[in-house]
Every structure is written in structure tokens, then in C-alpha cells.
């Protein structure tokens, strides 16, 4: 989607615009970044992708991907309401998703397994959002942009807000990194070790709401799953160390965003289509790879060695057993 401001930029530089890639990578990238709307898209897309990738890893670890999905849909009502009131839709998303995530965080454990309740609230919010959109007499393009992303229309101010939000979210994530990891993997032991798991859960939901608000600009509320959950899910399957998993998740999200922006620039198809397709393809590839690795490992190396060691262990334990 190219909004009027971006169209203006585009037409003002029309002399430099080429319809397709020249298959010279440096020249193509230079060409692409000669447009302000593309520079804006890359800056905001990168900032929100890093946040989505890092927050998304914890979303997957904590099993809150449905909550993330629901928060984005609740955010849609906020965006539509903001459009109706003549405000920035992303601020509407942020306001309502922060409120919703705080509510979910406070309910916490009691909400676990209550997919029906979350789903109904989500559907009601979508309906409310649709009402706001139909009441709005202006450009229907705005609603479309909230649902499916609007990264090519982003203004300089919005880029700066996105980058600022990313810096805040990443700083907070770094501050709670170890206890959040502990609580995400083993809440009971974490609580016994003195970690305030309840407060941490609410705090994480708020970070998730900010990440959702940012990522909505790239992929829209309907397609948020791709950018927020897929890189984390791939990293969870592949990486052995949590730090490596976070790095992988962040890099994947950025890579997906960059490639999608570039593909969308050279083709008539929208960014969020590429984001979701690349994310899905990446997840399938990760599953295939882990399945192949597991299979190869079992058949070639691990099984015989494991069996030998188990036998040795049984013998060792047999001699150490104290009989009364």
C-alpha cells in the first residue's frame, strides 16, 4: 500500500525509479534506498523486527502466542477508534493493547487454558473495530492498512517513535532477561527462588503489547503471528543456548522484514504477504531440519553410544547399590 505522501515522494523522484531489479545488488539497493519512503520503511521495519524477534522468543517459551494474537486484534479496535477520532492509529493500537495485556497479565494463571474467553473478547474487539471503521467516512485505505500493515506510508515522526519504543523495550528486556528466562522455563522453581513471577508476567505482557504495536505497522493486526511468533518458534527449535536463540530470532525477524520490503519494492505484491510467506517457509524448513537431524542422530551416532553408556551405568550402579 502506498499512501498519498509516499506517492508524492515516489512521483517526485520518478526519474530514478526503475520497474525491476537490474540484477546488480549494490545498484539495486542504492536505487531502492534513494527513496525516502523506502528508507523510512527499512528503518521502522528493522527497529520493530528486532523487538518482535526478541520478545517473540519469550512469547514462544511462555506459550503465550495466542495472547499475542488476541492482543493485536484487541488493538485493532483501538486503531479504528483512533482513526475515527482523527488520531494516529498506531497510538490507538498501543493504548488498547497495553490495557488488554495488563488485564491478561493480572488475570495471569486464571486465564491459562481459557482460550474461549480470550477468543470471544478478541472477536468482540474486531467487531467493534469494524463498527468504528464503518462509521468513519474518510479513506477506507486506513482500515486496510491497520489490518494488513502500512509500512510504506510511515512518516519521519512515526519512524522516530518506533525506534524510540524499540530502544525502551530492548532496555527493559535486558533488565529482566535472566529472571524472565527462568520464570518462562520453570515458573514454580523461579518463584521458590524469590523471583516475583506475577509482576514479571504483567511486565512481560506490557512489553509484548509494545512489540505488537510496532509490528502491526509491518504486518498488520491480522498477520502479526508471522513476525512475532515464527522467528521465536524457529529459534526455540534450533538454538541450544538462550542467548543464541535470541540472536537467531532477532536476526531472522530482521532478515524476513528486509527481504519482504525488497521483494515488495520490485513486485506488485504487498509486504505483509512476503512476511507471512517467508516466516511460514522458514518455520517449515526449521521443522524439516530438526526432524532430519533427529533422525540422522538416532540412526547414526547417538543410539549405539547411548545404549553402551546406559549398560555401563547400570553396571556401575549395580555395584554401588547399598543393600540393607
Amino acid at each position: 500500500m502506498i499512501t498519498t505522501s509516499a506517492m508524492a515522494t515516489l512521483s517526485s523522484q520518478a526519474s530514478g525509479f526503475t520497474a525491476g531489479p537490474g540484477w546488480n545488488l549494490v545498484a539495486d539497493i542504492q536505487d531502492m534506498l534513494s527513496f525516502a519512503f523506502m528508507r523510512h520503511a527499512f528503518a521502522a521495519g528493522t527497529a520493530s523486527a528486532i523487538v518482535a524477534g526478541l520478545v517473540g522468543y519469550f512469547v514462544v517459551l511462555r506459550g503465550s502466542s495466542f495472547a499475542a494474537h488476541a492482543i493485536s486484534h484487541i488493538g485493532f479496535a483501538g486503531a479504528a477508534g483512533a482513526v475515527l477520532l482523527g488520531l494516529n492509529p498506531v497510538l490507538g493500537v498501543a493504548a488498547l493493547s497495553l490495557w488488554a495485556s495488563a488485564g491478561m497479565g493480572v488475570l495471569g494463571k486464571r486465564l491459562r487454558g481459557r482460550d474461549v474467553v480470550i477468543g470471544l473478547i478478541m472477536a468482540a474487539s474486531l467487531g467493534l473495530g469494524y463498527l468504528f471503521i464503518s462509521l468513519y467516512t474518510g479513506n477506507a485505505q486506513n482500515a486496510y492498512a491497520i489490518l494488513f500493515g502500512q509500512i510504506f506510508g510511515i512518516t519521519t515522526g512515526a519512524v522516530l517513535i518506533t525506534i524510540g519504543t524499540s530502544v525502551i523495550v530492548l532496555s527493559l528486556l535486558a533488565a529482566v532477561y535472566r529472571p524472565l528466562l527462568f520464570a518462562s522455563l520453570d515458573e514454580e522453581v523461579a518463584q521458590a527462588r524469590g523471583i516475583p513471577v506475577g509482576a514479571l508476567g504483567i511486565g512481560f505482557m506490557l512489553l509484548m503489547a509494545l512489540a505488537v504495536s510496532e509490528a502491526v505497522q509491518v504486518s498488520g493486526v491480522l498477520l502479526i503471528f508471522a513476525l512475532l511468533v515464527a522467528p521465536g518458534a524457529i529459534a526455540e527449535r534450533i538454538a541450544r543456548r538462550p542467548a543464541a536463540a535470541l540472536a537467531l530470532s532477532g536476526c531472522l525477524a530482521v532478515l524476513i522484514t528486509w527481504v519482504s520490503l525488497a521483494l515488495s519494492y520490485y513486485t506488485p505484491y504487498p509486504v505483509s504477504f512476503y512476511v507471512t510467506s517467508l516466516a511460514f517457509a522458514g518455520y517449515l524448513a526449521a521443522r524439516a531440519w530438526t526432524a532430519w537431524r533427529g533422525h540422522a542422530g538416532r540412526s547414526r551416532r547417538f543410539a549405539p553410544r547411548r545404549q553402551r553408556r546406559r549398560d555401563a551405568g547400570m553396571r556401575a550402579r549395580g555395584t554401588a547399590t547399598v543393600r540393607l
Binding site: 533488565a175 532477561y177 535472566r178 528466562l181 522455563l185 523461579a190 527462588r193
Partner: peptide, 18 residues
């Protein structure tokens, strides 16, 4: 896919901030 080492390591400093 987290390694056994990292799971056990949470017992050492998993409760510390930052």
C-alpha cells in the same frame, strides 16, 4: 532445544536481574 547446561545454570544466577 535449550541445553541441559543452561537449564542447570538457571539455578546459579537465574534469579538475578539484568
Amino acid at each position: 532445544s535449550i541445553s541441559a547446561e543452561d537449564l542447570v545454570g538457571l539455578g546459579v544466577d537465574g534469579h538475578r536481574w539484568g
